[in-house]
């Protein structure tokens, strides 16, 4: 906010760019997580933590 009580340029730019970048990165990482789960389900039939048959 500036002295007039308005949201200033730097704050709008920070909020909008942070929202776009954060949204994009969360979308990317959730997508990577989903594809990892699908890959594990394809390989072992179901997704469980520590379900690697080479370990147990």
């Amino acid at each position: 906010m500036n002295e007039n009580g308005k949201i200033d340029d730097k704050t709008i730019a920070a909020l909008s760019s942070a929202a776009i970048i954060l949204g994009g990165l969360l979308y990317y990482w959730i997508g990577e997580g989903q594809s990892t789960v699908e890959l594990l389900e394809l390989a072992y039939g179901s997704f469980k933590f520590f379900n690697n048959p080479l370990v147990f």
């Binding site: 906010m1 704050t11 970048i21 954060l22 990165l25 969360l26």
Partner: peptide, 19 residues
Amino acid sequence: INPWTIRLVAVTSMLIWFT
């Protein structure tokens, strides 16, 4: 500065460099 603006900027910055 609005504390939520600062928090959003900080979290975004950390996620950027983590990626």
